[in-house]
């Protein structure tokens, strides 16, 4: 900002340091320009996590939509920084898949993430995040968050995501394993309570697992056309 800099150079500084400091000063015009950008950026830093995830105010979402291109371009959109919030997950989510031949017989199966297969840990975590994000996307509420047109439109867009995700993962597995059909299941692995753990219960006991069918991908035989 263009103002008189009241910071007097420290008398104790060496001549060299004083010279360095003088050379490093920016002109008022440049400072004003940079200040405007810094102010804008700091507002953007606050607005992004205020607006997402929901619940969030109409005000924060309006401001967010105004600066959305900037947020997306700088990878600030939709983060929220809610690490393990509001609660850490009560269950992990894994994807189990069955590979089938054209007649529908299971030829093989697998799952991701898989600690035995995915190494180093960072690669395992990438696969883990895909299964977790599949859970998030395929678990979208059936109704919009509110009756506002904005929320209804957002909800309609969200509802298209599960099919696209299943198609994307299914077609990849189909190509990777040369399987004409792939069935996908979401596995929920619940964690033990401290009491159960103290009793000596196994953290991988069958009772801690639940499963639901996500969908089936069927490869269309012929020239590179896939369908679900």
């Amino acid at each position: 900002m263009p103002t008189q800099d009241k910071n007097q150079p420290d008398q104790k500084l060496s001549k060299k340091a004083k010279k360095q400091r003088q050379q490093a000063q920016w002109s008022p015009g440049l400072r004003m320009l940079v200040s405007a950008f810094l102010l804008f950026h700091c507002v953007a830093l606050f607005v992004a996590p205020l607006a997402s995830p929901q619940p969030s105010s109409g005000l924060s979402r309006s401001v967010e939509s105004m600066i959305e291109p900037y947020l997306r371009a700088t990878f600030l959109k939709d983060h929220g920084y809610r690490f393990f919030a509001p609660n850490p997950p009560m269950a992990s989510h894994l994807v189990r898949y069955e590979l089938l031949d054209a007649q529908g017989n299971i030829t093989s199966e697998g799952r991701f993430p898989d600690l035995d297969q995915h190494w180093p840990r960072l690669l395992y975590h990438r696969h883990f995040m895909i299964s977790e994000s599949m859970f998030g996307i395929t678990d979208i509420p059936s109704e919009p968050y509110s009756d506002s047109p904005e929320d209804i439109k957002y909800h309609q867009e969200l509802r298209r995501l599960p099919d696209a995700y299943l198609e994307s993962i299914g077609s990849h597995l189909s190509r990777q394993h040369d399987a004409p059909r792939v069935k996908l299941y979401m596995v929920e692995h619940f964690i033990l309570s401290p009491e159960e753990s103290l009793k000596g219960d196994s953290p991988v006991a069958e009772k801690l697992f639940g499963e639901r069918f996500l969908g089936e991908y069927v490869r269309e035989e012929g020239p590179a056309n896939d369908r679900r």
Binding site: F84, A85, P86, I191, P194, V204
Partner: peptide, 27 residues
């Protein structure tokens, strides 16, 4: 925001949240 977001969760109030991390075999 990480801290404020946690204030909405019961497990951070009752003090059991870190257990969820420790007991999660996938993590």
């Amino acid at each position: 925001f990480a801290g404020l977001g946690k204030l909405q969760g019961d497990t951070w109030w009752d003090g059991t949240a870190t257990w969820m991390g420790f007991a999660n075999t996938e993590y």
